[in-house]
Design a protein around this nucleic acid. Sequence first.
DNA 1: CTATTGACGGAGA
DNA 2: TTCTCCGCCAATA
Length: 120
Amino acid sequence: MASMSDAWPRRVYAVVRQIPPGRVASYGLVGLLAGRPLAARAVGNVLRHCDDPLVPCHRVVRATGEPAFPNHRIRLRREGVGFIGRRVDLARYLWSPRLPRLTPGEGRGAGQARRAVRRR
DNA sequence: CTATTGACGGAGA
DNA sequence: TTCTCCGCCAATA
């Protein structure tokens, strides 16, 4: 949760750490999940000092799909992220976060295994 | 306290 | 489609 005791940078890093390899999230989405829907810009300010190797900051791109840095494009390609020109193919590689369950116990009916979804 | 800055986003031109 | 403006947020000076 986004309690006040949690510093903004901590919340941002917590979200970014969740982005799996081969997927990307926009600065805006990260801000949203960190509890500040309109703070995309502030997210960038945090990631600017990203020295922690556990934080895959290269998986955070602009809403347009363009990586903040050209070198990130290389790293993303190595993870299998597809591009259209110089921007990430967001239709296929945008991360769909699993949101926290509000009613634990519900969801996922009778032994239905989760099927991998192919993105378009 | 106000002003500036910045790995942003989106509406318009 | 690309480029400019302007709003938004947090950190700094």
